[in-house]
């Protein structure tokens, strides 16, 4: 029995690095799939949010959305995100562009994996390809 104790301790220590990951997997197994969340710029400035997965609201703060024009007149946006948790997180972002009348003009065909260090500010930027793209809709999922 005494021979097994150090082995058990070693096993526990080795396993320490994966405890968080396992916990995360357990949590994810018990909860529904991650819903997509939105932040959309407004014509008058600022942004509106649609939070469909409350867990992301506890983890990530959306601090600001800035909108500007490039030299060619195309809309460019920047969203400032902050990881308010004590753990490193990974979120995935994607952009959709809307015309002034609300119709979708462009969609990004993939998710961009965005690591967020604890407390760190991260800025995600997108530039429209079409001149009629006026507003930007940021799509976020927590994993």
């Amino acid at each position: 029995m005494k021979k097994f104790l150090p082995l058990l301790a070693l096993g526990l220590l080795t396993g320490c690095t994966t405890i968080l990951e396992t916990g995360d997997k357990l949590e994810r197994g018990l909860t529904p799939p991650d819903a997509v969340n939105y932040a959309t710029t407004k014509p008058e400035g600022g942004f509106s949010t649609q939070l469909n997965d409350n867990r992301i609201g506890n983890k990530v703060e959306l601090l600001a959305a800035r909108k500007s024009k490039t030299d060619g007149g195309y809309t460019r946006v920047q969203f400032d995100l902050r990881n308010g948790a004590y753990l490193r997180q990974t979120i995935n972002v994607s952009f959709e562009w809307l015309a002034a009348d609300g119709t979708v003009t462009e969609s990004q065909p993939n998710w961009i994996v965005t690591p967020l260090e604890p407390g760190a500010l991260t800025t995600v930027t997108a530039t429209a390809l079409k001149a009629q793209s006026a507003e930007c809709r940021l799509r976020l999922i927590s994993r």
Binding site: Q108, P109, N110, W111, I112, V113, T125, A126, T127
Partner: peptide
């Protein structure tokens, strides 16, 4: 897709 869209931007 990931690399391409980031390059495009």
């Amino acid at each position: 897709a990931t690399a391409g869209s980031q390059m495009l931007q």
